[in-house]
Amino acid sequence: MHITVICVGKIKEKFYTDALAEYQKRLSKYCKLDIVELADEKTKENASAHEVELVKAKEGERILSAIKEDMYVIALAIEGKMLDSVEFSKKLENLGISGSSHVAFVIGGSLGLDKRVLDRADMKLSFSKMTFPHQLMRVILLEQVYRAYRIMTGAPYHK
């Protein structure tokens, strides 16, 4: 399976980059993994609702341009469906079996995802009702993808 993580913003903190590198290494035996980092838009501290929508629209354009026709798109969104780790593993496995061999996970910027990106998504997935920094969400996502592959293959993994 080919997994692409499309995300807004760069990660500068070493502890995040170290964690991401570790999960990329672990995942290399299970799938082809690509991470597509897109530029984020600068947002004023007290941005109006209109300015927020403009920022999300600009970031949304970049995200949509990175999505390929053959991708099954899973947008990470607080209003998405929540799955436990076993359900998530089964979802990925079923996608592979059904011929969706290229899955793209989309992580928006600090303001969230543009409506057009959510409309393009084949699935909206929520990891929690809580809000996480998008840098940390990338680590959490890769850990859960790794856990999903360990579950699929029957390999032991910390519970």
Score class of each variant (00 low, 15 high):
Leu142Trp: 11
His50Asn: 01
Tyr157Cys: 01
Asp114Gln: 09
Asp34Lys: 10
Arg120Phe: 03
Gly99Arg: 03
Gln24Ala: 11
Leu27Ser: 13
Lys56Met: 08
Val106Trp: 07
Asn94Lys: 15
Glu41Trp: 09
Tyr149Val: 00
Ala19Pro: 10
Ser89Met: 06
Glu45Gln: 05
Arg150Met: 15
Glu59Ser: 06
Gly96Asp: 06
Leu20Asp: 07
Ile140Met: 12
Tyr149Leu: 07
Val55Arg: 03
Asp70Glu: 15
Ala104His: 10
Leu33Lys: 03
Ile3Asp: 06
His102Trp: 05
Leu64Phe: 07
Arg150Asp: 02
Val86Asp: 09
Ile11Trp: 09
Met1Gln: 09
Ser89Trp: 10
Met82Ile: 14
Glu59Phe: 06
Ser101Tyr: 06
Met71Trp: 03
Met130Phe: 12
Phe127Arg: 00
Ile107Met: 06
Lys90Val: 11
Leu92Gly: 05
His158Asn: 05
Ile107Ser: 01
Ile11Thr: 14
Leu136Phe: 05
Arg62Asn: 04
Ile63Phe: 05
Gly108Met: 04
Phe105Ser: 03
Tyr149Gln: 06
Ser98His: 11
Leu95Val: 07
Glu61Tyr: 01
Gln135Lys: 10
Val8Phe: 07
Leu92Ala: 08
Glu51Cys: 04
Leu142Asp: 00
Glu69Ile: 01
Thr17Met: 07
Arg62Glu: 02
Ser85Pro: 08
Leu95Arg: 00
Pro156Ala: 11
Ile140His: 07
Ile78Thr: 15
Ser126Ile: 02
Gly80Trp: 03
Gly99Glu: 09
Gly108Cys: 11
Ser89Asp: 05
Leu83Asp: 04
Phe132Pro: 03
Thr43Val: 12
Leu111Met: 10
Leu33Tyr: 01
Val36Trp: 09
Lys91Ile: 02
Glu41Cys: 09
Ala19Lys: 13
Leu38Val: 00
Ser110Met: 13
Lys68Pro: 02
Tyr16Lys: 02
Ala104Cys: 12
Lys12Gly: 13
Glu69Asn: 09
Phe105Ile: 00
Asn46Val: 08
Tyr16Val: 09
Ser28Gln: 13
Lys29Tyr: 10
Gly9Ala: 13
His102Arg: 13
Leu20His: 05
Tyr23Lys: 06
Tyr157Asn: 09
Lys14Asp: 14
Ser101Pro: 06
His2Ile: 13
Ser128Glu: 03
Ser98Ala: 15
Glu93Met: 14
Lys29Trp: 00
Gly9Ile: 13
Glu41Val: 15
Arg138Gly: 00
Ala49Gly: 07
Glu79Ser: 14
Glu143Tyr: 08
Ser110Leu: 05
Val103Asp: 07
Arg150Glu: 00
Ser126Tyr: 11
Tyr30Cys: 01
Glu13Thr: 15
His134Arg: 13
Leu38Ala: 07
Ser85Val: 04
Thr153Leu: 12
Met130Gly: 03
Arg120Ile: 10
Leu111Asp: 10
His134Leu: 12
Gln135Asn: 11
Ile140Val: 14
Ser65Pro: 01
Arg26Tyr: 12
Ala155Trp: 01
Lys159Phe: 11
Ser85Arg: 01
Lys129Phe: 06
Ser65Leu: 12
Gly9Tyr: 13
Asp18Cys: 09
Leu64His: 00
Leu20Ala: 02
Ile63Gln: 04
Lys32Arg: 00
Lys58Cys: 13
Phe105Ala: 06
Val55Ile: 15
Ile97Glu: 15
Ile151Ser: 01
Val86Glu: 06
Val139Leu: 08
Gly112His: 06
Ala75Arg: 04
Phe88Tyr: 03
Val36Asp: 01
Met123Thr: 05
Leu95Cys: 04
Asp70Arg: 13
Glu87Trp: 05
Asn94Pro: 05
